[in-house]
Design a protein around this nucleic acid. Structure first.
Lengths: 114, 114
DNA sequence: TGTATATTCAACCCGAAGGTTGATTAACCC
DNA sequence: GGGTTAATCAACCTTCGGGTTGAATATACA
């Protein structure tokens, strides 16, 4: 099993702190200190979280004087959505197939015991 | 930060072995041994993976003689798709806003330096 | 009843993940 | 240049996740 970029994205999103950071960034860009403010953890810890998000391609950090401005990059979300949709379709199809199968069983049963 | 069910789903999907198990189950139900066969790890390790998937609600295990038959449950995937779509929409909107902003800047610039 | 098979439980190992504190780098401002 | 602020780097601690092996449980079968 090759290491997929999907690993990094799912791993990044598995942490509630990181999802909260993304939620904050969805309302606009922010610096590391601004992002860290609402959390009861150190700025260094938040900095680590940002590194994880950056590795997953979910955010981009740019230098701006002594600040690092963070902004979202929705690209990996598209990949994720494709993955989810693919599986949902597969599974829904299977469920449809199962439904049909059960319906057939039912009908056959009804025919045998009218 | 309350522990969300989303945590369990993202965590479950972060592991490539577990995603492979889901891929296998997308083609139909299977027993633990059947699921374990393709992997170079022990049956016990696979059993643990299945527990993680079950906790996330992604699979259901039913007793069948001495076997445990596993089947997918696509429900959490729907929740996930909703989450992803919500964020994608938010972010795409922001990007549209940024695009418009940059376009406005450009136009203003062109007016000032014709 | 006894044995084989399927699966889980329990105890353990090891490395990675999330947190801390302290030091370092980089840019601004007086 | 000297001091302040923003952020990262480095070292460390503790918890958790994925793996192992060995024992226990449950069911089928002869």
């Amino acid at each position: 099993m090759i290491a997929e970029p999907l690993d990094a994205v799912f791993t990044a999103l598995a942490d509630p702190t990181r999802r909260a950071i993304l939620a904050r960034l969805a309302t606009g860009t922010a610096t590391v200190n601004e992002l860290a403010a609402p959390f009861p953890i150190s700025v260094q810890a938040v900095s680590k979280h940002l590194a994880v998000l950056e590795r997953a391609g979910l955010i981009v950090r740019t230098r701006e004087a002594q600040w690092r401005r963070c902004r979202l990059d929705p690209a990996p979300l598209r990949t994720l959505a494709e993955w989810v949709d693919k599986y949902r379709r597969l599974w829904d199809d299977r469920y449809d197939a199962l439904d049909n199968y059960l319906r057939d069983l039912e009908e056959t049963h009804n025919e045998q015991t009218p």
